[in-house]
Amino acid sequence: MVEFGYTLMTEQAGPRELVRFAAEAERAGFAFEVMSDHYSPWLEEQGHSPNAWSVLGAVTQATERVGLMTYVTCPIMRYHPAVVAQQAATVQLLSHNRFTLGLGAGENLNEHVVGRGWPPANVRHEMLAEALQIIGGLFDGGYVNYAGDHYRVDSAKLWDLPDVRVPIATAVSGEQSVGLFAPMSDAMIAVEPKPELVQQWDSIRHAESPKIAQLPVCWDPDRSAAVRRAHEQFRWFAGGWKVNAELPGPPAFAAATSFVSEDDVAQNIPCGPDVGPIVAAAKPFWEAGFTHLALVQIGGDHQDGFFEFARDRLLPALNEAAN
């Protein structure tokens, strides 16, 4: 069974709008909702970046049914892992056990703001592995002391623990990261529909563990308008995560994507009013073995029409095709 979700994009809407979108997405029939956790948007045209955890607290009260998740939180620099554990436990309590903590090794865009530089990828993976140990230990209950190469924890305890342990989903990109993070995680996050990632993950965890991905789309009654908007706000997507993780701010993303054309974007992101291209773009994910796919509707001012489209046409088509 494949479930389809909605992405609360903090980079393209303010906090009050995001809370409203969360309620509307639930009414439209989405099964779960994921929220980005950024300090900065990728591009100035996106124009927003409220605190994800504050918004999540409000979203828990504005929704009743949908699963909730960070997609993703980086617990290695901007947040200490002990603080992330406390935030996650609180959201789990507020949501009545609907929350999954999505974690990843982060982007320079968001993490450099605390003035600690930006370590290479192998060091970031070491830091994330230590963070997972700390967070898991705190979720176990009791006092935690930890002395690692990157973090220390001194007699920390979560005083408000939910009765259902917070599941941890971790972002992976290849064999090395799957081998490192799967043993400490409950679910997998990946951005590309690679069957080999799913197969390796399942060999370490189990086939029932969720595999979660994300797909940007740009619905609009006018396909040309959709392509223009996708190019304006999502051309950063063309760089891929290995490049995007290293860029320090919106000016760098603008420079790096200055030669990305509207046609380039339209070839990679389904744009316009039709269901067919979105279903075709989603199909490789469930064929690869992913169990959850969160859609991103590009454009903070273009959500209401998308919810109607999703309720009446898109979600029925996706569920019929996948399930």
Rank of each mutant, 00 (worst) to 15 (best):
I76Q: 07
T60I: 09
G57N: 05
Y79S: 06
T60K: 01
L43I: 07
R78P: 10
T73D: 03
Q61D: 06
P75S: 07
T60Y: 05
V72W: 13
E44T: 12
C74K: 04
A52H: 03
V59D: 01
H48A: 14
M77E: 02
T63N: 03
T73R: 00
P75G: 08
G57F: 06
G57D: 03
A62K: 09
S54H: 08
M77S: 09
I76Y: 04
L68E: 07
Q46Y: 08
Q46P: 06
H48L: 10
V72C: 15
A58E: 01
N51T: 11
E44G: 10
H48V: 05
T70W: 00
P50W: 04
V59N: 01
Y79V: 07
T70Q: 00
H80C: 11
L43S: 00
T70R: 00
T63C: 02
E44R: 12
V59K: 00
R65Q: 15
W53M: 06
M77Q: 08
H80N: 15
Y79M: 08
G57R: 03
Y79C: 09
V66Y: 07
Y79E: 04
Y79L: 11
T70Y: 02
A62P: 09
A58G: 11
S49V: 15
V66I: 12
V66R: 05
G47W: 12
T70F: 02
T63V: 00
Q46N: 13
E45L: 09
C74H: 07
H48F: 14
R65N: 12
T63Q: 00
C74G: 11
P50G: 01
